[in-house]
Design a protein around this nucleic acid. Sequence first.
DNA 1: TGGCAGGGTCATA
DNA 2: TATGACCCTGCC
Length: 284
Amino acid sequence: MIELEQRKEDCWIHGVQRCDLKQIFDCGQAFRFVQDGEGYTGVALGRVLHVSMQGTSLVLADTTCEEAQQKWLPYFDVERDYAAVQSHFRDDPVMQQAMDFGQGIRLLCQPAWEMVVTFLFSQRNNIPRIRSLVEGLCAVCGQKLSYRGKDYFDFPTPGQVAQAGLDALAPVRAGYRAPYVYDAACRVASGEFSLEKVAQLPTNEARQKLMELKGVGVKVADCILLFGYGRFDAFPVDVWMERAIRVLYGKQDFHPEQFGPYCGIAQQYLFYYARQNGLGKAGT
DNA sequence: TGGCAGGGTCATA
DNA sequence: TATGACCCTGCC
């Protein structure tokens, strides 16, 4: 049972099972949180947030319970019973192992626009560079935020990116991805492309719609659907997943549908397990 | 110092 | 359906 308690400036969310912040922020779904003392600090939903776990309590620093209720319960997917989700995959021995390894993974509910940009940046890049591109973009056109004496930058709106102009993105060093991001920003800002309407579509149609954006292919679209729209039936397959599937299942008889409506969450367990254990790299 | 791969996608054939 | 090119960085 989830309970919220205000302790001085902080909101304590009690009774959060299967919640490991390291796993959550290292499993490749979010790129703006960094370890900071006992917890993590990052920019999300328009503010700087310090978050930590105390036992089974999720502690949000400098946050009212009202704000937590409104914004952060959905963001951390707090009210979903992950034990119940995991029980869907129990009969698969490979998944069993991957789930044991990444018990504390939860899928964050992040803004669709932020996911569009983040996963456009992700193509042919490693995680440190994805982080640096996201931070670079925020520094160029995001609003400055201050917290505990340090400066941070909010994730820019489509309008802010569009207004900044393509040339202004040069310092981000995003290479051929910069025009993709700029084009998406212009189309969303002008209303020509509606990210809200995508939310109304069934997953297959939503995927096709997202792929109308330049630079968005199947993999990036699936990441946007999974992380930005909470479509747990989206199953992004990148080179790591290909390797993991090859090593763990043998390529032939693998179908994401076998995991049912939560296959996207299954994908996160497999992905994290494969990455952390270097599965599929030469010699493994 | 040069070569290559890194959470893909697009344009060609 | 299959290749190469694309921007940029960090590693060997």
